[in-house]
Design a protein around this nucleic acid. Structure first.
Length: 592
RNA sequence: GGUUCGGUAGCUCAGCUGAAUAGAGCAACAGACUUCUAAUCUGUGGGUCGCGGGUUUGAGUCCCGCCCGAAUCACCA
């Protein structure tokens, strides 16, 4: 049990015994005492005044006296206005450190057979272009969320739904046929996803030219965009694809395989993975079935033109199209189909979709529809909605060439890490150096993205935003590397020295207190689906450690007991930093 | 217009279920390396928490209204 709980329970007993007030312990939340006052934890006594019928100061005084007399851990207290500042016995903190140090799973809940099964969908790329900065945010959030859910005792299945069919894919295919001259990723010396992306752009270029030409001949823009020969060809191709035309299907699968090879490389570099991948080409027909089933049961209705709709007006929403008049699927239908397959494959108890906030309405509707269709988790599905990444001159626009490519970005970050560290002389092999630069570069990128509240749009300034000092990934990584250096140089005998009798000083107590916060933060991050909480916590912990490191010697300390204590403290901090960063999908280097 | 989400220091952001004088980082300025890693540490300046009401002993936080910004409201995905 944590010190917070102990104190809360003792206080609960105190107000019961002093004032006859029934106040459950979980309603009393001791806070960390502000650093300008003496004390470790503070209890605000205002809520008790109605029962005590005394002034705030007197009430605090009485509770303080009760705690000193009845609570083992409390040493003394002071009162300022309605704030009861409590000093915990220093010896108590030593025990706390020992228990945290001894528990490699401190703060995590066990996953077992009866754990809840949570499926998390993230990434969800299209196969017509490479991953960009928006996907980076998505991937990092999704992966981190899966780690956080696991740490909170859930079984997690990470999944990805690949949008591998549709008109946009046909555009790339068509462009490749027309202008590709049989080129392959091998011949081009280029990742497959980038190659296909180039053809998508190529299509757009020619298409625009055609539209422009038709418009000079007097067509309106909409008309021209509909009548352009290229788009007609693309539509023909889509029709052939849907009819299962062997040639088109073969080209389709070849080109998609190129893209998947490219994606795999990017995912691997980024450090994210999936337990199960679904493809829209497999799921879109399933959705249609499910919708027709719903139509039979009278949940949906058919218009005169044959299209099928859901009426959601009673839920405060609109009419929503589910099948086109020609019987083909729309986006919503596909998501229903995917849900159906997933439900067949796994006993899902909770579903989390990591998808951008431009889809908020879509998921509101999806939740209602899945619920109507009888999916247990439909009503309570979580749309983990995150904001867009903006650039200094606005949004990313592929047409204007302002898309930040994921592969380029990661390479740039690693190069920056090399640049920043070129004057440092930490000895390591070339292989290790390369790996460390990778860890630091990616760490900077991941931390930068994950420390921000996911709901907010975030600004990415390639020149200025990525810093390696201050509140950054490398700052935290440095703290870890620094501790490892100390541990490497320490005397093994110190590790076995008993320091139970040691009474830690103020800075040390503050650090231990921070360490115990880890459990609270992990739980809170799980409850609110917030990697940012973990990121900010690990930063605070690192900062507290760096202050301690600056003020006190560790190996330099002559007293063997103090030395042993500080080594244990350092080692424990490093452990929590490493585990905290692991929740974010960020690695830590042994030296840097 | 409807719905959803944002607005905190010059910039980028914290601020959990209400609590002490609203905090970090960057940028600016001034300091600390013969020392366990200075990617560090210390200090200074910088705020009408979008605006106005309300609830409360107490509001950046909760409620109402307004202003500004974003997303969305397709037989696109």
């Amino acid at each position: 049990m944590s010190i917070d709980n102990i104190l809360a329970q003792a206080t609960s007993l105190a107000v019961k015994s002093l004032y006859g007030l029934e106040m459950p312990a979980d309603k009393i939340v001791p806070t960390t005492t502000k650093k300008e006052f003496e004390g470790n934890l503070t209890i605000v006594v205002f809520p008790f005044l109605k029962a005590s019928h005394k002034r705030a100061e007197d009430t605090a005084q009485e509770i303080g006296e009760y705690l000193v007399a009845n609570c083992e851990a409390v040493e003394k207290f002071n009162v300022i206005k309605g704030f009861l500042n409590i000093v915990i016995k220093p010896s108590f903190w030593t025990t706390v450190l020992q228990s945290v140090a001894a528990d490699p799973n401190f703060g995590f809940k066990q996953v077992n057979d009866s754990s809840k099964l949570v499926m998390i969908e993230y990434s969800s790329p299209n196969t017509n272009k490479p991953l960009h900065l928006g996907h980076v945010r998505n991937n990092l959030l999704g992966f981190s969320l899966s780690k956080i859910m696991e740490a909170n005792g859930n079984k997690v299945v990470k999944t990805n739904i690949v949008n591998d069919r549709g008109i946009h894919i046909c555009k790339s295919m068509l462009a490749w046929l027309k202008w590709g001259n049989g080129i392959t990723p091998e011949i081009a010396g280029k990742k497959g996803d980038h190659l296909i992306g180039d053809f998508y752009v190529e299509f757009d270029k020619h298409f625009k030219a055609e539209v422009k030409e038709l418009m000079t001949q007097g067509m309106s823009q909409e008309e021209a965009e509909r009548e352009a020969p290229l788009i007609k060809e693309a539509h023909d191709m889509l029709k052939k694809w849907e009819d299962g035309d062997a040639q088109v299907r073969k080209l389709w699968s070849t080109m998609n395989d190129w893209v998947y090879a490219g994606f795999d490389e990017t995912y691997k570099r980024m450090g994210v993975d999936f337990d199960k991948i679904y493809y829209e080409s497999d799921t879109y027909l399933e959705g249609k079935e499910k919708v027709l089933e719903g139509l039979d049961k009278g949940m949906f209705y058919r218009k005169d033109d044959g299209s099928v709709w859901a009426d959601l007006t009673s839920d405060g929403l609109d009419q929503k199209l589910l099948l086109r008049s020609d019987g083909t699927s729309v986006y919503m239908t596909q998501d229903i189909g995917t849900a159906k397959l997933r439900f067949q494959d796994y006993p899902i108890e909770q579903m989390i979709y990591v998808v951008g906030n431009e889809q908020n309405y879509h998921f509101q509707v999806l939740s209602l529809l899945l619920d109507k269709l009888g999916f247990k988790w439909g009503k309570d599905l979580i749309h983990f909605s995150y904001g867009m990444v903006e650039l200094p001159n606005g949004k990313m626009k592929s047409r204007e060439g302002t898309v930040v490519d994921a592969d380029d970005l990661m390479n740039e970050m690693i190069n920056t890490a090399r640049e920043v560290s070129k004057d440092r002389n930490v000895e390591m092999s070339e292989d290790e150096r390369e790996n460390v630069m990778r860890i630091i570069g990616l760490g900077a990128l991941k931390y930068f993205i994950l420390k921000v509240d996911p709901r907010k749009n975030m600004l990415f300034n390639p020149q200025e935003s990525i810093d390696f000092n201050g509140n950054t990934g490398p700052f935290v990584q440095y703290t870890y590397a620094r501790i490892q250096s100390v541990l490497r140089k320490s005397n093994p005998d110190d590790a076995s020295t008993d320091f139970t009798a040691y009474r830690p000083n103020e800075k040390e107590v503050a650090l231990i207190q921070r360490l115990t916060d880890f459990a609270t933060v992990v739980a809170e991050a799980g409850r609110t689906y917030s990697p940012a909480l973990v990121a900010n916590y690990v930063f605070e912990l690192s900062k507290a450690y760096n202050q301690f490191y600056h003020d006190y010697g560790i190996l330099k300390e002559e007293d063997a007991i103090v030395r042993a204590f500080r080594l244990s403290l350092s080692k424990t901090v490093a452990g929590i930093v490493k585990r905290g960063f692991a929740l974010l999908g960020i690695e830590v280097p042994e030296r840097m």
